[in-house]
Simulated scan of single mutants.
Amino acid sequence: MCLAIPGKIKSIDYQYGGAVRMAKVLFGGITKDASLDMVPHAQVGDYVLVHVGVAISVVDEEEAEKSFRYLQEIGELDELIDASQIDAPNPDTDR
């Protein structure tokens, strides 16, 4: 199943020589990068639905929180949490 996960934009910057507008998006305590090319009007503090690293729409806070809770209840956020643990450097092994 393909899911879009709601998250809050914490910061925005331009990458690849200014060609791509990227955001740091907070997903319940986990921060990931997401392209904002499909939502050029999105701003810091907005909630967006992110699918495979691309923000596909802006949603209000209430809808984002409701969707996040539902996804958490059905176990669809496990992969996001597991991926964040894999991506995080391990000070004991990454020397």
Score class of each variant (00 low, 15 high):
residue 53 G to I: 04
residue 82 D to V: 08
residue 38 M to L: 15
residue 78 D to Q: 09
residue 40 P to Y: 09
residue 57 S to I: 07
residue 4 A to F: 01
residue 43 Q to P: 00
residue 4 A to M: 05
residue 9 I to M: 12
residue 94 D to N: 09
residue 85 Q to N: 12
residue 81 I to V: 15
residue 15 Q to K: 15
residue 25 V to I: 15
residue 73 E to Q: 14
residue 36 L to G: 02
residue 65 E to R: 08
residue 86 I to P: 01
residue 66 K to Y: 01
residue 24 K to D: 11
residue 28 G to M: 04
residue 1 M to F: 07
residue 55 A to G: 06
residue 47 Y to E: 02
residue 54 V to S: 06
residue 74 I to K: 07
residue 23 A to I: 01
residue 95 R to P: 08
residue 11 S to R: 14
residue 57 S to P: 02
residue 95 R to I: 13
residue 22 M to V: 14
residue 57 S to E: 13
residue 55 A to N: 11
residue 69 R to P: 00
residue 66 K to F: 05
residue 20 V to S: 01
residue 15 Q to E: 15
residue 24 K to W: 05
residue 33 D to M: 12
residue 1 M to W: 07
residue 92 D to T: 10
residue 71 L to Y: 12
residue 19 A to S: 13
residue 16 Y to I: 03
residue 71 L to T: 01
residue 54 V to W: 01
residue 82 D to N: 08
residue 70 Y to S: 09
residue 9 I to K: 05
residue 78 D to I: 15
residue 37 D to K: 15
residue 53 G to F: 02
residue 88 A to C: 13
residue 84 S to E: 07
residue 57 S to K: 09
residue 58 V to Y: 00
residue 43 Q to E: 13
residue 55 A to H: 02
residue 84 S to A: 12
residue 6 P to I: 03
residue 28 G to K: 05
residue 57 S to C: 10
residue 78 D to S: 12
residue 57 S to F: 04
residue 36 L to I: 04
residue 5 I to L: 14
residue 80 L to W: 00
residue 80 L to M: 04
residue 24 K to G: 06
residue 82 D to T: 08
residue 68 F to C: 00
residue 27 F to C: 06
residue 23 A to F: 02
residue 33 D to A: 10
residue 77 L to T: 10
residue 64 A to D: 04
residue 14 Y to A: 09
residue 84 S to D: 10
residue 32 K to A: 13
